[in-house]
Design a protein around this nucleic acid. Structure first.
Ligand code: FES
Ligand code: FES
Lengths: 145, 145
DNA sequence: ATAATATCCTACCAAATAAGTAGGAAATTC
DNA sequence: GAATTTCCTACTTATTTGGTAGGATATTAT
């Protein structure tokens, strides 16, 4: 499961995506409108800035902006940044690889299945971007299952 | 990511699957051969028994057995049992649904994408069973990536 | 200059979860 | 009734999560 922090990150990014091209948005603004604890949000946004997907400006008229267009920011990027590995096992993670203790990697059946799972997940998360999330929200209420 | 406990569970189950039809296997046996902390493994196996996928016998000649054939035990079942939800958000979990705080479900773009991701993951994990894991191991070393 | 506005930085804290241990009770077999 | 083996309850410890506090630093406006 994604951490609460990651959910906050997405909510904030969605907000920024909606305001893309209209200048900086205040942390306090995002915090209020999206119901995210202010100080926590500060940290989150700052992290994403350091990671290169946000830009910031201090002082009056300042705030945060997406560093690139919403359709350039992949969900996989955000998740890896804020949440960590996408794979279900360290040994099949592309970006956070770590060997499994006491398990023979070249011979591990679980590992192979989890590699397949990772690929299926990634196929979606590498394709979907913030723009897709915004679009879905504007498409109006939908019930899903 | 799957917890270490879940990895242990899978290692143990794989071992039991390999010995399926040959009578009970001792906890201590699994513990040694698969390098899993004994007392921890005790708890894990017992949990899975209560959940209905294992059977046990006490006393001499006792031990654990799979309650059904390896190809009847889905990976999704095991993960849900030991690890918890498979979905990336509580609001899209089929078996562990919980509402997200401060997020309008009927209108949430992230939710929709995560529902798609969940489906893709489940499509694999509901299909693959312990038998597949065992088969992969017997298919011999393979390098993946 | 200097006050006001905002982000940035360092550090800390509490609650929850994960990972594992200890010790004996209960059932089964020999 | 002794040996074997799982079962049960409870505890401990380490790590991660979800924050908070307080001031430093940069920018703008007067
Ligand atoms: S090598 Fe990672 S689970 Fe076997
Ligand atoms: S409702 Fe679950 S993330 Fe929006």
């Amino acid at each position: 499961m994604l951490s609460k922090k990651t959910q906050y990150a997405f909510r904030a990014l969605t907000h920024l995506a909606e305001n893309y091209g209209e200048g900086p948005v205040l942390i306090s603004d995002i915090s209020e409108r999206r119901k995210i604890p202010l100080k926590f949000l500060e940290n989150i946004l700052n992290e994403m800035k350091k990671a290169g997907i946000l830009e910031s400006k201090k002082g009056k008229g300042g705030g945060y902006i997406l560093k690139m267009a919403p359709n350039k920011i992949k969900l996989s990027t955000v998740i890896r940044l804020v949440n960590g590995p996408i794979a279900l096992l360290p040994c099949v993670s592309l970006n956070f690889y770590r060997k499994c203790d006491d398990c023979d990697e070249t011979n591990c059946g679980l590992r192979r299945v989890m590699a397949i799972t990772r690929d299926a997940t990634l196929k979606i998360l590498e394709k979907k971007t913030l723009a897709d999330i915004v679009f879905e929200e504007q498409a109006g209420p939908k019930t899903l299952r």
